[in-house]
Amino acid sequence: MPSSNSAAMAFLLSRRSRPAKTLTGPAPNDAALMPLLTAAARTPDHGKLEPWRFVVLREGALRRLAGEVATCGERLGKSPEDIAKARDAYDRSPLAVVVVEVQKDSPKIPALEQTYSAGAVCLALLNAALASGWGANWLSGWASHDRGFAEGALGLAPHERIAGVIHIGTEGATPPERPRPDLGAITTWVSE
């Protein structure tokens, strides 16, 4: 039997994202955020392409983006309720890290593997924040999938896209446990 890290396993078996609307300040400062980014950057990366990068959004940038979300929603014909909900995540958040997928040309590494790596960075950053005692949530939403928002509001290049927005702050309330998948229904065991 291999040696185990029981504390890490206990964390993974009980981890729970914190709803973005419950996050308050303070948020991690630069010194507290760097280990979280470092942990996220240790994500599996076939070919060492680093097909992702980070954009750290402090409160001023988040408030500006709240307005950009509203403008984007109006342009897309979203309902006032949808716009208010999407805007709220940026209006309330004390800090967010945008994980940007950066597709790299590679004869060996398919684009899909690069997308998976960027998604894994999102989860690694979320887990690093939670393991460090912060409240955190991984959101994206319709605005983050809009090229006008991605390029205009965040300055992304045409070959970049938002993989996720990880909101990080102080946990304002502990959420109740939610139903989890039935492993028997989603697991196939193959012996031969």
Rank of each mutant, 00 (worst) to 15 (best):
T38Q: 12
R178V: 09
G155C: 06
G25W: 03
R42V: 09
E151K: 13
E50F: 12
A185R: 13
R75Q: 13
R15K: 13
W52T: 02
A32R: 08
L76Q: 11
S6D: 12
L12I: 11
R64Y: 14
S14I: 00
L95V: 03
R75W: 10
E192M: 13
W142Q: 14
A96R: 02
P179V: 03
P2T: 06
P2Q: 08
V56M: 06
A143R: 09
A118T: 03
A163P: 05
W142A: 15
L154S: 08
V165T: 13
E151G: 04
A153T: 09
A124N: 08
A118W: 01
E192I: 13
A118F: 02
T187Q: 04
R161Q: 10
T38D: 12
E81P: 01
A124S: 10
A131L: 06
A120Q: 04
G184V: 05
G152V: 02
R15P: 02
G135N: 04
T22K: 01
L62V: 08
E74F: 09
D182F: 07
A129K: 01
N127T: 04
P181C: 09
R64M: 11
L183H: 07
L154Q: 03
G135L: 02
Y90Q: 08
N29K: 12
A32M: 13
D91Q: 13
L76F: 02
A70S: 14
R53I: 12
L123P: 03
G135R: 00
V190S: 09
G77P: 07
G60A: 12
A131Y: 07
A136W: 00
E68M: 15
K108F: 09
S93M: 04
V102C: 05
V98C: 09
L57P: 05
E192L: 14
R87I: 10
P80L: 01
G60I: 02
E101C: 10
V121Q: 05
R18T: 11
G172E: 01
D30H: 15
K104W: 01
A131I: 00
P19Q: 06
R58T: 05
E113Y: 11
D91R: 07
T170Q: 00
W142N: 14
E81C: 00
